Amino acid sequence: MRAGAARTRQRGISFIGLLFVGVVLACVGVVAAQLVPTVIEYQAIKKAAQRATAGTTVPEVRSLFDRAQAIDDFSAISGKDLEVQKQGDKMVVSFAYDKQIHLAGPAWLLMKYAGRTD
């Protein structure tokens, strides 16, 4: 076989392609590293709202939520931001809030979180 014929059969990624894939993966990793804490905070808020449904009045529900907020240490919303309704014999807590993640320059990623206890 000639040397030129052997090279045409080689397959794989070039160095430039490898650099491109590395940069794309790094960018995705940076965004994911900023996104994960907001998802964890959402789960803590949802858990606090679920705990707050043990209250029997709207001020008591908000107070229970604020206590859970102090324990779980989140700051996106507080008890006054909750929408509390009584359906039948149980309290239903709804909430919604936005989180913004700065990407680069004028680019932002807006995350809209909403939840409801049932």
Rank of each mutant, 00 (worst) to 15 (best):
R2Y: 02
A3S: 10
G4R: 04
A6N: 11
T8S: 09
R11E: 06
G12C: 09
I13T: 15
I16S: 00
I16Y: 04
L19R: 08
F20P: 00
F20A: 07
V21F: 05
G22A: 09
V23H: 02
V23S: 00
V24C: 10
L25I: 00
V28D: 13
V28T: 08
V28L: 14
V30W: 11
V31L: 15
L35S: 10
V36P: 08
P37Y: 13
P37K: 15
T38G: 12
V39Y: 13
Y42Q: 06
Q43H: 10
A44Y: 15
A44Q: 15
K46M: 03
A48G: 05
A49Q: 01
A49R: 01
Q50C: 01
R51C: 01
A54G: 04
G55D: 12
G55N: 12
G55K: 12
G55V: 11
T56H: 02
D66P: 06
D66A: 07
R67Q: 06
R67K: 09
A68H: 10
Q69G: 10
Q69F: 03
I71S: 11
D72I: 08
D73K: 03
S75M: 03
S78M: 15
S78F: 10
G79N: 03
K80Q: 07
K80P: 04
D81M: 09
D81I: 01
D81E: 02
L82Y: 12
L82T: 10
K86Q: 09
K86S: 14
Q87I: 11
D89H: 15
M91I: 11
M91L: 07
M91T: 13
S94G: 01
F95R: 08
F95C: 02
Y97C: 00
Y97M: 01
D98T: 12
Q100S: 07
H102M: 02
A104P: 05
P106R: 06
P106L: 13
L109S: 04
M111F: 12
K112R: 15
K112I: 13
A114V: 05
A114L: 03
R116T: 11
T117L: 01
D118F: 00
D118T: 05
